[in-house]
Nucleic acid binder design. Structure first.
Lengths: 336, 336
DNA sequence: TTGTAGGCGTTATCAC
DNA sequence: GTGATAACGCCTACAA
């Protein structure tokens, strides 16, 4: 392995001089600078960032922890985070918890042992509390992303789940729907709770009764609860519309409906939170409350770096991003 | 920061003993082992992996370099790679080059400075040659993923682009299509060349003439070449089918066709390489040659780790993954 | 402007 | 079974 000493020897200077050339610190004559740079070039020297981190107590590396890498919301968000990090001179370490507390725990350990300078953290749910506390104990700056966790005070960037859900329900009730089902994520996840609140509020506004038989609670990914769907469809007052609390749930719901010969939107309307960028691009089908995923990542990353670099206000900041109703074809007036 | 010395002091042993407990190396009495572990637990000590890497000359970290994080082919692949890496005790550093040689170059520098133990590398194209050579010079093991690069000999895992394309063209010609356009990626990318070969072979088999006016070459992502599409549509022998060389191109093509009032498949059939998992889940529309994305990642990662751990045969291995024709609705018999 | 000494947190080696 | 020492590659502080 080529070290700073190899460069030093070949350039007839000390290692320190080489270090100074690399980091542009201290004064050195143009002549030696030139010579050193030539040798660095020639030998293709690249500093060992582990050694550097060890002495600097800084890795110039950040972590992004997301909960589902196959969800386009998070991959778009990841690009925003990556772009922002790179722009400000940081490298980004991606981690993917798969909505699993166990994997999340492992990643937190990795994060801690890697000594990254900060974390943009999308918690799996309320039980992520301990993981976040662990970061706080070590004084690792972090920004909570997408979901809040009761018991933790920190910078947060999240969507307006309540309002977005309300918009969707309003849209459905305006179309004339009276029986609207909710297929939601786990109640352990803040966005699921808020979307349910928005749903309830929407019913209230339209003076519709709440019917717990129209609610199905599950996880945010890999939805395939056949029994649950059958239960909804068999409910005494069969729903004419379903609000899926995120895009992955909507996909599952529509797939299961089609499997049963139920047409969308002719027989049942479906709306959801989060867009499906790719699918929507060539087939504008799903009516959604879209969140600005890229900005979630980009702005969250800015907040994190500002915090790390001491450019943020002392008290924790909360940024709430609005969502946008995109009316397309998956919801229509109820058939009856 | 809690170090191994803090543990040592509190447990009344030397740092070495603590190290031995952590790494389960050397002999130590159950009593002290117990005591040390207790203190580790108590203080929540997590070893500094930078310091460890420095002395071990090994980071237990691997890089996955993909070219488009918004492409579901690559995110699914990423999950496969991640699962395999974690299973074998490695952490994974994701990087995303956006099909951009400049970004790729930066990531290679990062990889080199981080001293990862190996890289699963999807090259942006033939001009990635220098980047790969750089890795070879440093003796960083790597497996080339998805695309080959002339001039580099190494382990490779890739799809059968030629055969997959051939299948798609055969399918189209069997339906009766005589004028089939190709919207391809850059000729600098091996998969684009091979898919074009498959396309040509398919034409030959069906005894169709080759018509260069039916070929549009562009990049694999962000397709929006309006003029190019117009040129294809205005061609003297208007195509009745389009073969898009990957999923992202297909999306762009269909979007632009719809924008022009051209219906798919009624007016023009469209087929492509790679599936769109999410979109296909709830709307089985695109007829594709699907590649086993998860296995690309999982198997590629196994190859890489085998290579690193000296468990691979000496000479470089090449694994070619078959693709699978999935017939759905985006292609039908030609209208005329 | 340049170089020396010491230390960042960990582990391999080799004594005790 | 346990511990002292040196080393991994780099940078800060200080001296020349």
């Amino acid at each position: 392995m080529i070290t700073i000493y190899d460069i030093a020897k070949k350039a007839n200077v000390s290692a320190m001089t080489v270090s100074k050339v690399i980091n542009q610190t201290g004064r050195i004559s143009p002549a030696t600078r030139e010579r050193v740079q030539q040798v660095i070039e020639e030998l293709g020297y690249i500093p060992n960032s582990n050694a550097r981190s060890l002495v600097l107590q800084r890795t110039q590396m950040l972590s992004l922890l997301i909960t589902d890498i196959t969800n386009p919301f998070y991959t778009t968000l990841a690009r925003g985070a990556e772009d922002a990090a790179n722009q400000r001179g940081y490298r980004l370490l991606f981690s993917n918890s798969d909505e699993d507390y166990g994997k999340e725990k492992n990643y937190v350990e990795t994060i801690l042992s890697t000594r990254v300078d900060g974390v943009l953290f999308a918690p799996a749910g309320d039980r992520s509390l301990n993981h976040l506390k662990q970061l706080q104990e070590r004084n690792i700056p972090f920004v909570i992303l997408d979901r809040t966790v009761p018991g933790i005070t920190s910078d947060v960037i999240a969507g307006d789940s309540r309002e977005g859900a309300l918009q969707l329900i309003r849209y459905l009730t305006n179309l004339g729907h009276r029986h609207i089902a909710l297929v939601n994520g786990s109640s352990e996840v803040s966005t699921a709770r808020l979307r349910e609140e928005g749903y309830m509020e929407g019913l209230r506004e339209a003076e519709l009764p709440f019917d717990s038989g129209l609610i199905l609670r599950t996880g945010y990914r890999d939805f395939s609860d056949e029994k649950g769907i059958d239960r909804l469809l068999a409910h005494q007052l069969k729903p004419t519309a379903i609000f899926a609390a995120n895009n992955m749930l909507a996909i599952g719901v529509i797939r299961l409906l089609r499997k049963r010969g139920v047409r969308v939107p002719e027989d049942i309307s479906v709306v959801c939170f989060d867009d499906l960028d790719l699918a929507s691009a060539f087939d504008p089908f799903l009516t959604v409350a879209a969140q600005p995923a890229y900005d979630f990542g980009a702005i969250g990353m800015q907040m994190l770096i500002d915090r790390i670099e001491g450019k943020a206000p002392e008290q924790p900041q909360t940024v709430i991003m609005p969502s946008e109703l995109r009316i397309r074809a998956s919801a229509s007036v109820p058939s009856e």
